[in-house]
Amino acid sequence: MMGAEFVALSLPPILIGIFAAVACALPGNFLLLRKQALIGDAISHVVLPGIVGAFLVTGVVAAWPMMIGAGVAALIAVGMIEAIRHLGGIEPGAAMGVVFTTLFAAGVLLLEQSDTSTVHLDVEHALYGNLESLIWLDGMGWHSLLDAGALRGLPPELPRMALTLLLVIALTWLFWRPLTLSTFDEGFARSLGVPVGAVGLGLVIVAAIAAVAAFDAVGSIIVIAMFICPPAAARLMTNRLEVQIAWSVTFATLSAVLGYVLAGYGPLWLGFQDAVSAAGMIATVSGVILALAAVFGPCRTRAGTA
């Protein structure tokens, strides 16, 4: 399990899974504290019309146009949600529900209408991703990690996801102070001159970037689960934001590794032959972690109640 086969078949997907999970969990912490946790859910639904639209425009299934299309769709969705909220005086949850279901429906319709039979583009791919297929054929063993030629054969999702993660970390670190201030006490932040609206929009955009990049590699289930479950479990462990973020990164990493291993090897251990969906298993593991935190977490109850 730890030999050459592992490096070629399991290392890249596990790394991609970890990067994607952490990249989503970091902004997820702030979204959770701002009671905007479902933004991740909405974004991952509207990614579908975005990628289908990008395919219709460019005619090819390529990563960059699709990510741009998904990003544009996410921005359109956020704009529509805000417009419906303000023009119609609708509460945010319902406005979100109207927008993401409509855009998702439009995406499905576009997909059915366009001739995508020749290319690999379908709803299931969008939902589950294909983590298992991101293998590294040039990886002959651990020594390949030092071989430039072999490294060039890595699945392109890996560097892209790593880059996204670095971007998310850098932005979180750079904007730490305005972000935390406006998350916990918007009025105070505004009185200090923090552009609260811009910070909120920036957070949503970063979340969208993470969601779109991760979605390309691992499908939207992991994206939704990682936005919410690790931060929520971490929130039940501590009262301090720094510690919460550390916990959430730990939980996200743990979910990715355990989920992938259980999906790949669990059925074999139980005597079955085929592996199960890694994306689904990662989401499931993150749910189990959240359930454990909800039952045993030291800070699980609201302040003031027993």
Binding site: I222, I228, C229, S277, A279, G280, M281, S286
Partner: peptide
């Protein structure tokens, strides 16, 4: 997300 993930599994 968790139930959906479980369903996919």
């Amino acid at each position: 997300s968790v139930f959906y993930g479980l369903g996919v599994v």
